[in-house]
């Protein structure tokens, strides 16, 4: 990997009560990279994003962002750190009571003292980058799912962050919007020189745009590699995931007692 490491995840553990979600995760991401984190539903991908953003505390291990250990920061330092991060939520999470313009302007108004005319120019620039400059006067409920996510993307790059985290950016989009968002992620990462972490289970779309992939299963990194390595991987889990097979290392059935026992077929003879 390149020398300029932005995020370093070291032996990260996290558990809800006694239930371990993440068990000893190690990762490293450098500037300019688009990194995908893939895994089945409920494998702890979103938890990982929350740990990087510092909204939850790890049980052990640490996340280092731009040289600072995230969970050791106090509230003010953490908020300062978060200004260098953007996050795109699954359905955009636009503020429904603000217009598209005000949504994108939100962080500038909260965190800077820029004059309103400059904010206007900046907002229109950000909206232009996602192709929605003409929609600045609309309210979020007038947008389609794909447009809402593009606005949210414009909002998350409002203060030119060093890192953007995408939580399932492809969910529920039609193929056109899907590739629009995918290409935007790549283009903005390259243009702004930031780092992108994409949490997704859309294998095909993400393999097209990312530089590196981590597979998480059962709280550990099951596999990692470049898209090329991943496509050609013979590891059974990666193979199942990339090719979308129903059964394999990730079983179709949720762990249960035997079928017979559940249907009380054995009890009748007991």
């Amino acid at each position: 990997m390149t020398a300029e490491t932005l995020i370093e995840v070291n032996d990260l553990n996290f558990s809800y009560g006694t239930r371990a979600i993440l068990k000893g995760i190690n990762m490293s991401m450098s500037r300019g990279q688009v990194v995908a984190i893939m895994g089945g539903s409920g494998s702890g991908k979103t938890t990982l994003l929350k740990l990087i953003g510092g909204t939850i505390q790890p049980t052990s291990g640490y996340v280092k962002f731009a040289g600072e250990v995230v969970h050791e920061l106090n509230r003010d330092a953490l908020f300062k750190l978060r200004r260098k991060m953007g996050m795109l939520f699954q359905f955009g999470a636009l503020f429904t009571d603000l217009s598209v313009f005000d949504n994108v302007a939100f962080q500038m108004r909260e965190h800077t003292n820029l004059p309103e005319s400059m904010i206007r120019d900046l907002v229109l620039m950000k909206l232009h980058a996602v192709g929605l400059r003409g929609a600045h006067h609309l309210m979020p409920n007038e947008l389609s799912g794909g447009m809402a996510r593009r606005v949210a993307l414009a909002r998350s790059i409002a203060l030119d962050p060093m890192l953007i985290m995408y939580d399932e950016p492809f969910t529920g989009l039609d193929p056109i919007s899907l590739s629009v968002i995918g290409n935007l992620i790549r283009r903005l990462t390259d243009a702004l020189g930031m780092t992108s972490i994409v949490v997704t289970h859309d294998v095909q779309e993400s393999l097209k745009i990312v530089d590196y992939v981590y597979f998480i299963a059962d709280g550990v990194i099951a596999a990692e590699g470049t898209p090329k390595e991943v496509r050609e991987s013979a590891a059974p889990f990666v193979h199942q995931f990339v090719h979308g097979e129903e059964d394999g290392p990730v079983p179709f059935h949720y762990p249960a007692q035997t079928y017979k026992k559940d249907l009380n077929l054995e009890d009748t003879f007991a």
Partner: peptide, 12 residues
């Protein structure tokens, strides 16, 4: 709709 979480992530 995660608006509060989004706000928290925007350091607000």
């Amino acid at each position: 709709t995660e608006q509060l979480a989004a706000m928290g992530m925007m350091a607000v």
